[in-house]
Simulated assay, not measured.
Amino acid sequence: MPRLPPVHGLVDPEEAHIYPQAVDHAGITAAPLHLLNVTFEQGDAQVHPFPRAGSTS
């Protein structure tokens, strides 16, 4: 497992490249998209599209 150095503030590219490796190794994934207690599955946006900003319809 990659060892993450303690960092305060910005990181340089040499340090930044180890973070995705550490996240993958730890098995961390993104949480599902949700609004309160409604969870959206992939493709829901095509079924229930949101109106575009400035749209009148």
Rank of each mutant, 00 (worst) to 15 (best):
A53K: 11
F50K: 12
P49L: 05
A16F: 04
H17Y: 11
A30G: 01
D44I: 07
L10I: 15
L4Y: 12
S55G: 08
R52E: 15
H34F: 02
L35Q: 09
A31H: 09
E41N: 03
V23C: 07
S55Q: 01
F40W: 04
A26H: 10
P32D: 02
A53I: 09
A22K: 06
P2G: 00
D24A: 07
N37H: 14
G54N: 04
H34V: 06
E41D: 13
H25G: 03
H8E: 13
L36E: 06
A53G: 02
M1G: 06
Y19K: 02
A16R: 03
G27N: 03
P51M: 06
P32R: 02
P51T: 07
Q46G: 11
S57H: 14
H34A: 13
L33V: 10
P49N: 03
P20N: 10
N37F: 09
V7A: 09
V47S: 09
L33T: 08
E41R: 09
A26C: 02
E41H: 06
S55E: 15
H8M: 09
H48R: 10
A53S: 08
G9A: 10
S55V: 01
P6R: 13
M1K: 09
Q21I: 03
F50P: 02
V11L: 14
E14D: 13
A45D: 13
P51R: 10
Q46W: 04
E15F: 04
L33E: 06
E14K: 14
P6D: 14
L4V: 12
R3N: 14
Q21V: 04
L35T: 04
L35D: 13
A26S: 08
A22L: 00
A16M: 05
P51E: 00
E41T: 14
P51V: 08
P5M: 07
L36K: 03
H8D: 14
L10A: 15
V47Y: 11
G9C: 05
T29G: 04
T39G: 01
I18W: 04
H34I: 01
P6V: 12
P5T: 13
E15K: 09
I18Y: 06
